[in-house]
Each structure stands twice: as C-alpha cells, then as structure tokens.
Design a protein around this nucleic acid. Sequence first.
DNA 1: ATCAAACTGTTAGACGCTTTACATTTGCCT
DNA 2: AGGCAAATGTAAAGCGTCTAACAGTTTGAT
Lengths: 177, 177
Amino acid sequence: MTDRVMKKHVRNQGRLHCDMGVSINRELELEQPLEDIRHELVLNIVRTATQISQKGALLFRRFDLTEAQFNVLFALKYKTSAWTQSDLSKRLVVTRASITSVLDKLEDKGLVMREKVPGNRRIYHVALTRQGKNLIDTVEPVYRETIHKALDSFSDRQCLELIHRLEQVRARADEVA
Amino acid sequence: MTDRVMKKHVRNQGRLHCDMGVSINRELELEQPLEDIRHELVLNIVRTATQISQKGALLFRRFDLTEAQFNVLFALKYKTSAWTQSDLSKRLVVTRASITSVLDKLEDKGLVMREKVPGNRRIYHVALTRQGKNLIDTVEPVYRETIHKALDSFSDRQCLELIHRLEQVRARADEVA
DNA sequence: ATCAAACTGTTAGACGCTTTACATTTGCCT
DNA sequence: AGGCAAATGTAAAGCGTCTAACAGTTTGAT
C-alpha cells in the first residue's frame, strides 16, 4: 500500500452538493492500434452484453431481484422435470458453488425451496414456491416487453441471422480452447 | 438460515479422489416457453460474451493477470494523451470505484503508476511502468493471435456487419432506458 | 470574490462469479 | 462384497463490479 491510500477523510460530514456518479464530460480519443477488426468485434460483443446486463439489472431491481436471481426463477418456471442444483448450474452455465449462494438468498426470501429427494440423500430438487411463482409471473411480461421494445427494429430473420453468427463465434472459440 | 446450512464437515481430511468440477453428464431439456426469438438473441449475446471472457481469463492467467487488469494495461498502451482514472473508467465503461481497485492491484505489482499532476491536486495521470509495458507487449501478440484463430472463419466484411448489428442493439437498448 | 454545483478519487458494503478444497453419498467394476 | 472414482452440495478466499456516501478540489455564475 502506498501512502496515497493512507489519506483519510474525517471532516465535512455535511453533503450539500450533488454526486452524479460517472458522466460523459469530455471526449476521449478512441484511437485503435491497428485496424484489427476482429478485436473490435470481440469488444463489441462484450460491450453489448454488458449493457444488456446492466439494463436488465435496473429492471429487475424494481422487483427487488438481481439478475442472477431472475435467471434462476426464470429457468425454474419453464422446467418440465425435477431439477437439482447441479442441473440448474448446467442450464445457467455457472458453477455449482454459484447456484448454492443464489439459492440461499432466494430461499431466505421465500421464493424457492430445496426439497429432499427420497431415493438420493445427496441431492435437492429445486422448485418455485407459490410466492416465487407469483413474482416471476409478474416480472416476466415486463422483461419480455422491454426486450421487444429494444429490438423491434430487428426482423425475426435478422435476429436469426445474428444468433447464427454468434453461435459460430462460440463454436470457433471453443475449438481454440 | 435453515438447518441444512448447519451441517458441518469435520472428518475425512484425506482427499484421495478427484473433483473435476462441473461436467456435462446428462442432457437437460432446453425447452423454450414460446418462440421468443428476441429473447433468444439476448441470451445468445450474453452467452457469447461470457464465453469470450472466460477464454480470455484463461489466457491472461498464464501471465498472472486478470481480465480487468489486462484491459487496463491494454488501454494504457494505446492512449496518446495523459489519462486520469476517470478517463480510464469511461474508456473501459466501468465505474471510477472499479478503476481504483484494479489500479491498486496493478500498482502493487509494479505494472502501472499514478503520477501527481502539478496543475490539479485532484487527479492522477495513470501510466505503464517499464515492467508494465514489457508485460503487455508480451501478452498482446498472444491475445491477438488467439482472437484471429478463433475468428478466422469470418471475413472482414462479416465482422463489420456483425459489429454494425451490435451497435444497433446498443443504440436501441439505450433508448428504452 | 464568493459560494454552490460539479468533478475526482476513495471507501465500505453487497453481490455474483470463480477456484480450490472438502464431506458425503452413489455407483460402477472387478 | 469391497473399493475407488464420480457426483453433489458446501465453504472459504479472491476478484471485479456496483451503489452510496464521502473529502477534497475546481469551476462557473452571480
């Protein structure tokens, strides 16, 4: 740690001015090193996903949910068979440990339940509670409507093409490993 | 907290078996609620970005870097003017608080330095150290080569089209707010 | 010249994610 | 039947991100 960090703020408890957080006030030169269009594509994909996630987070917060919590509720709503935590982790492409922590929070809120499974003492079946079902039924239409508004300039065909391209990207990226 | 959580593991210190982490052993039904192609597109974008990030993290870890740390070094390498932490936060589209924590770690590793600015006691100019410059110069070619290998089935024109589409998505998503 | 608003960087707390390591349970294979 | 590997869920530590709140500095309007 440098001494810079040691500087402490102890006075000025009153807060009379406004802190608007990050804002754009000055243009940065977005100079590119060389015309590396593939690097640019990668940046664009990540940037778009980030923006989508942040917009989603704002929406979900209106219902006191995080994005991860919404994803779990949404997945549970449309499952047709009994799912374990491990199943959930594969479906959402996160580790089992992540599922444990998200489920802990959802269980505390009374939105999901872990049910012991008679034949197997290792696993739990995860399911929505009545309250969880009600909540996701409330959030889902808002979520879908927002997505449609955001993407209404895209035709179904354009969406499909874009999806196809992204699948190609994933497939190739997988091979490189 | 439920009693489930209270269960403690205290014995069996020996670890003779292998824990390979999450693996795919059983197919999950990926049933979709209705044919919501736009929702599918959103999932695809986020999923692709996640995969890219995880692949990148693997690569960067070979150089003892996280993705966020790489992003900072990479941005600093190609800046043409002096950048403050705030500039960096805008460039990387994260909050100033995030930049503070990443820079703390990079500074501890001796890869970047914060320089006081004579005319303005509020800001620091952030720059690569000699060591930081050397490191990013080592990592960058590997990074670029990986991206090119992963995307070599895309023509420049296809990349451009895809970028354009993604920019459209971001623009529209911004409007919805 | 003053003063309020804006800007910059930091801190604290929360969250999600990962990795690593573990206890327990199950299942397969000889 | 026994034993070893795999599978499941949990815990802890580390990282990056966010929001909120703050101290200090600068700026701009009056």
